[in-house]
């Protein structure tokens, strides 16, 4: 095994030092406590400060722990919180679009369905909460892969199975698809996962603009598409809904 990275060890030691009680320490205190040259200590502190892990008091020039460290511990958005916030908006989306609505998040190598609103007709439907969908072929998956780097890695590194003749499996072609998603702000799946089924999805962001999930409208291809194109009013409705949920989560308008 290679040796540990010395500068990271030193950075960790600094954070521990600053975490000991409610204190602010000057550069020379930190350097001498850790037996470092002032220049070395300063370089590490500056990097930590840039990442938001350390803050420098402008008056005294002393250092303290940064707010980013606190957020790091609390950043995980509970999926049940996400569902609770999305409830009214997704109901309204299902009602106005006449199609079923899914809310998905990244889970392991796929999309986990955390909320599902039935298509508003009287047909028998089964609740799909807890089901998994593929990342590379579904509208939800593509949106997550386009916006969330972790989802992107999973989608690129895992095997991309061909479900229908339209499934995109080639790596370069797949990246092009994701570029389009990012450029337009929404993703689609026209018979790429299931024959006869099409979907439109848009990303949900939290207050730090992190992509935390995606919302999709899914239905029969002849209803969701018109003249070979996804119906623009459906795309607009999905994006409105995703934006409304993002706003509820505290994301600023974008």
């Amino acid at each position: 095994m290679a040796k540990n990275i010395q500068s990271l060890e030193r950075a960790a030691a600094m954070l521990r030092l600053l975490a000991g009680g409610e204190r602010r320490l000057g550069l020379s205190d930190i350097a001498s406590s850790l037996g470092l040259a002032k220049g070395t200590a300063h370089g590490i502190l500056r990097t930590l400060q840039h990442e938001g892990f350390v803050e420098q008091d402008s008056a005294s020039g002393r250092y303290q722990l940064g707010a980013e460290l606190l957020r790091l511990g609390n950043s995980y958005l509970d999926v049940h919180e996400l569902r609770a916030r999305a409830l009214v908006w997704t109901d309204d989306l299902a009602r106005s679009s006449g199609e079923s609505v899914h809310l998905g998040v990244l889970h392991q190598q796929g999309v986990l369905i955390v909320h599902h609103v039935f298509r508003p007709d009287d047909s028998r439907q089964v609740l799909e909460v807890g089901a998994m969908q593929p990342l590379h072929s579904t509208a939800l998956g593509k949106v997550l892969a386009a916006y969330d780097p972790v989802a992107h890695t999973e989608a690129v590194e895992s095997e991309r199975r061909s479900f229908t003749p339209r499934t995109v499996t080639d790596p370069e072609e797949f990246e092009t698809v994701l570029d389009v998603v990012r450029a337009r702000g929404w993703g689609s799946d026209v018979e790429e996962t299931w024959e006869g089924v099409a979907a439109v999805a848009a990303p949900i962001h939290d207050r730090r603009r992190m992509p935390v999930g995606a919302i999709a409208v899914t239905g029969a291809v002849e209803r969701v598409c018109q003249g070979g194109e996804l119906r623009p009013e459906l795309v607009a409705a999905v994006r409105d809904c995703a934006r409304a949920v993002s706003r509820d989560l505290g994301a600023r308008r974008f």
């Binding site: 009214v88 309204d92 679009s97 006449g98 009013e233 409105d240």
Partner: peptide, 10 residues
Amino acid sequence: MTDAHTTGSH
């Protein structure tokens, strides 16, 4: 509840 261009809106 949704803004403008919702399909089949009221």
